[in-house]
Simulated assay, not measured.
Amino acid sequence: MKGDYRSGGVLIIFLFQFFLSLHSVIGWGEWDSVSCYTCGITTIDPENDEEGSYGTDPGENKKMYNHSCDLMDNGLGGNYRFAGQELEPRDWVEKIEHTEPKLDENGTAITVCKEEVLDTNGTVIEEARCDPVFRNWTETRKRPPKSYDMTMWVRKCPEGVRSCFKAQGNWDEQKPVFRGCSESKYAHGTTCKRELKAVRINPAAPLVDVEVYLCYCSSDNCNIEINSGNPLRVDGASLLTVIATVLIILFITEE
């Protein structure tokens, strides 16, 4: 067992509730805020932002940013098989109508013949003719896969939010990634910080260092990758929010 979830349960539950309270948003609309790539935080759910907006079928104006950043990063890397979207759903087909002559067992076209028609004076009013018999059938053919839709990972941030973040945790060979909207309603600029937190996983064991690398940027959809040598100046609540999230994921998923 890499980490003892039970021994740290009280701390994890507190952090989870704290994080959830910070991200509670009532209603959603076209207000003034940035949009950010969002992933890795299950409490940030499209259905909570706007009912009926969740889905994994691209091209349907749906959102899936409550899923893991592993899926999003697979989509960015072209590994679509493990990127979470339904690019070839079962009903993604086209129906093609066909009409062709019917053939007998010898391969000869089957015909239906009519004799000529005469009027009462013996005049031909309709010529004798033979018409081929046709059969109609429908072919169901798979369509080419849909294009991967990165906009499904984009979230309109709460009103007034000016920055996006990307964070990566590091503990015991685990390096989960998180992306989302900053909680602060001011622009951080492009800044990064490495934060090392001592956490007691087991009451009988010494503290362990959990590393969180956190970056901010302040434009729409800027947080796929953020690289900056600028020091991060961020209020304590925002930093605690991200660190809490990383700790939850690191320890709540332990076997």
Rank of each mutant, 00 (worst) to 15 (best):
G84K: 00
T191I: 02
K62L: 03
D73K: 11
I44D: 06
C69A: 04
E183Y: 08
N106H: 08
R6P: 02
E139L: 05
S182C: 02
E254H: 08
K62D: 01
D104N: 09
G229P: 01
E60V: 09
R141E: 01
V117K: 12
R143Q: 09
G169C: 05
G189A: 04
I110N: 00
T138K: 11
Y54W: 14
K114N: 14
L247V: 05
D209G: 09
G107I: 06
V34I: 11
F14I: 04
C157R: 10
K2A: 14
N223A: 02
L196F: 02
V212C: 07
P132G: 10
E127H: 07
R129A: 11
N79P: 01
N74L: 01
V25G: 09
C192L: 06
C39E: 01
I243M: 13
C36H: 06
W137L: 02
M72Y: 07
L240H: 11
P132W: 05
S7G: 09
T241A: 13
H98Q: 09
E254I: 13
R141V: 13
Q17Y: 04
S228V: 05
T120N: 12
C192Y: 03
L87S: 02
Y216Q: 09
D45R: 04
F19G: 14
T120Q: 05
L232R: 13
K166G: 05
D45F: 03
N227M: 07
D70A: 11
G8W: 02
I226H: 04
D104F: 04
G75F: 08
F16L: 09
Y213C: 01
E30D: 12
R155A: 07
T56C: 08
N136K: 11
L20C: 06
R200A: 07
Y148A: 10
T241V: 07
C181Q: 03
L118C: 03
C181R: 01
S228D: 00
G84T: 01
K114Y: 15
E100R: 09
R90D: 15
E211F: 00
Y213T: 09
T120L: 08
R194E: 14
W31S: 10
I12M: 07
E50R: 15
K114S: 15
E60W: 04
L11H: 12
P144Y: 02
C222L: 04
P46Y: 06
V210Q: 08
S238Y: 03
F16R: 15
S33T: 07
G169W: 02
T245N: 12
I110C: 06
D57S: 06
E126M: 07
K142V: 08
Q174L: 12
E195L: 14
R194V: 15
P132V: 08
L103N: 09
V199W: 11
E30S: 12
K156D: 00
N221C: 12
I44N: 04
I44T: 12
T138V: 13
T43S: 14
V234L: 11
I12A: 10
T120H: 11
L76T: 06
S7P: 00
G229W: 00
F134P: 04
Y213F: 14
N136Q: 12
